[in-house]
Design a protein around this nucleic acid. Structure first.
Lengths: 388, 388
DNA sequence: AACGTCTCCGCAAACGTTACCGATACTTTT
DNA sequence: AAAAGTATCGGTAACGTTTGCGGAGACGTT
């Protein structure tokens, strides 16, 4: 006999369909719907039982104390007698207790994790910056999660969203070449999460920035070429959407102007320098009627590509063609006559950004608009050294 | 007049000291201690208010629905009318709602994060593996957290502890050279968290392993030297605590034996090959009375160091000294006559481990004892090619 | 006796989500 | 009509911590 769970009547109970496989009833008297659920401690519920990891509560129960006591004992708080503390520690070790950082993070709403978004992994630049940042962060007890935007604005947006969702304590980011809207970045300031830009930065947003002296470095590199007697210097630059590319172009032009060398548009190429692209542009430059006698490339891999092509064509380096790159990749020291290049302090970039973000994590005001400029070093090797 | 909060008596209430700055009373009648706290909605409570991020509850309240409804709407569940769903989505966007992954993780007890512990970052090997794993993981919607054990067993332990605390869904690990106890790794199996070893593996524990065919690769490399007419081949190996080093040594010996070349202990050096160490060992080998006419090094950086030293000493490569390395670093293609080396499929190692761990994350049984062996490729360059 | 101080510990409210179980109001079938 | 089916929504217990606040003594001091 079915009994209404509300008014306890036994007659006047009508069936009223099924809900999720269970019979449902309607009591005529109190007009109350209810289902009469047979207990099912069948296989289902047993199978579903998850692997249990011992928690603070387990430790507390098996010791007959409260979980606050356990929590405080584990964290070395005051208000705990030495005996209980030791008992808790012993029991925790015995039960193989591992704290659940997730719960901790939730209640403290901080994760001890710094996020990092880089556009690519192909060049050695970003891995090295990661190494530098990693050093500082682990030293300070922080974790590092890395995401790759893959030079896509859309991916960058979803990356930042994921970072926000994961409640990282701070973000280090180097923009994609597509990024020209910065709303997704201002969200961090709104939430009080420090954000630091490095390498690929933008001025439209007031955050700390870590860059190198691109202008001076380029100026110096081109000046070095000129002082070595090169006249028709071409520039293989990056996409002008990036500030770094603009700065390096500016440095190139400034040096050319200073020494009265003509700046010719067809000697300047701006674009995303994949290896394939570098080959195409190199082909173009080396086949020009008025062939450049030097090339200042915006990264080492394309500079090396140029060098290899020149050697294939029988153009001698550095006598007929001077080459200067940017970044000082590992291979640049060993190739041909050695590639002259601008060494970037990659590790230090990592250090600086990481230290800065840690500093801001505990700061009151994270709205700072400061740019730290690290200095580069021109590494002169055979590819540009010729007697004048 | 003070009233007992238990028996409501007003007289017979005695002062009984202070607790945390508040007056405490004792009721004579019911023997009950209590404090009479003046409300303090002063500055304190206002200052303490943390920056509030809008939650599901905020969205629900401002829409007059329950949070279950909001949750379901946001996740595209069934049981939601199109209108409410849209209303929720709109309101969420308007209030700038960002889901709190921490809470999600806590209740689902899964983080969508794979951990990775590598011993070092200095060689290009591990960064490249990271790139490979990163590709696969992001593709599958997983995050990657990286830690560095810095070749220290203790750090490795604390890293694994941190990984457990952070409730990663799976771990990819390459051991330190010190690691010879594996209790910290068996914890993962106990907790049902898949763990995969790669490169630096151990056989004492039944987990999936991804390695390269070190034995065959070394054998082939040494055989190549022998076939090029080298006789007194030295081996600059890694620390024998690592299985990779053992395998490579085994390959070296097997090839020497096959061709009847004598294996001399003083021609075999095992140790951790930092750049400095490589110089010392190189010095030793090149100054031997019976100088080796070839060196098989366990990594490229020390092979290159040897090449540079030989060139300084005026020993010609490959005629007087053959050199073979391991890993195919970026610079190896460009140095001197080109460094013959064993190319490791670093990206593929990353792919394989990542795919494997993703597969095990959703698997019933994670206890597998399988070793996947990826194949290497001998890249022959000038440093070992001489006419016999 | 009355009050102050100190030590050790427990209660319960957060933190933000998800998901199970129902509840309500309909329409459709028997 | 009674029963069954469908669509939509709410209540609430988890998940595992931390922490503010206060209780219960013990002991010391007027």
């Amino acid at each position: 006999m079915i009994q209404c769970v509300k008014c306890a009547q036994v007659d006047g109970i009508m069936k009223a369909g099924y809900v999720r496989g269970k019979q449902r009833y309607l009591c005529k008297w109190c007009n109350y719907y209810f289902t009469h659920s047979e207990r099912d401690d069948s296989i289902q519920s047993l199978v579903k039982r998850k692997r249990h990891q011992t928690t603070i509560i387990d430790v507390a129960k098996s010791l007959g104390v409260s979980n606050s006591t356990v929590s405080r004992a584990l964290h070395g708080h005051a208000d705990i007698s030495p005996e209980t503390r030791q008992a808790v520690l012993d029991k925790a070790a015995q039960l193989d207790y591992q704290p659940n950082q997730l719960a901790y993070n939730l209640v403290k709403s901080r994760t001890n994790t710094i996020g990092m978004i880089v556009p690519e992994f192909q060049n050695q630049f970003f891995p090295n910056v990661i190494i530098g940042a990693h050093e500082v962060l682990t030293q300070a007890g922080y974790n590092l999660t890395i995401m790759q935007s893959n030079e896509s604005y859309q991916v960058e947006i979803s990356n930042t969203k994921a970072m926000l969702a994961n409640r990282i304590d701070g973000l280090l980011i180097s923009l994609t070449q597509e990024t020209n809207n910065f709303d997704h970045l201002s969200l961090f300031a709104k939430r009080g999460i420090p954000l630091i830009q490095f390498n690929r930065v933008c001025d439209q947003i007031d955050v700390p920035k870590v860059v190198v002296n691109d202008f001076e470095a380029s100026f110096q590199a081109v000046e070095h070429l000129i002082l070595n007697g090169y006249e028709r210097i071409a520039h293989l630059g990056g996409p002008l959407t990036l500030q770094v590319s603009q700065e390096r172009l500016r440095g190139y032009k400034a040096a050319m102007e200073k020494y009265g060398k003509p700046i010719k548009d067809h000697m300047i190429i701006q674009g995303m320098l994949t290896q394939q692209k570098a080959r195409i542009y190199g082909q173009y430059l080396l086949d020009l009627a008025e062939r450049p006698d030097a090339i200042f490339a915006v990264n080492d891999s394309s500079a090396i590509e140029i060098m290899l092509m020149a050697q294939e064509k029988g153009i001698s380096i550095p006598d007929e063609l001077g080459v200067v790159g940017f970044s000082d990749n590992a291979e640049s020291a060993y190739i041909g006559p050695g590639l002259t290049t601008v060494r970037q302090p990659t590790l230090q970039i990592g250090h600086t950004t990481a230290e800065w973000v840690l500093q801001l994590v505990d700061a009151e005001d994270i709205i700072v608009n400061e740019k730290r400029v690290l200095s580069t070093e021109l590494i002169v090797r055979g590819s540009s050294r010729r007697r004048v």
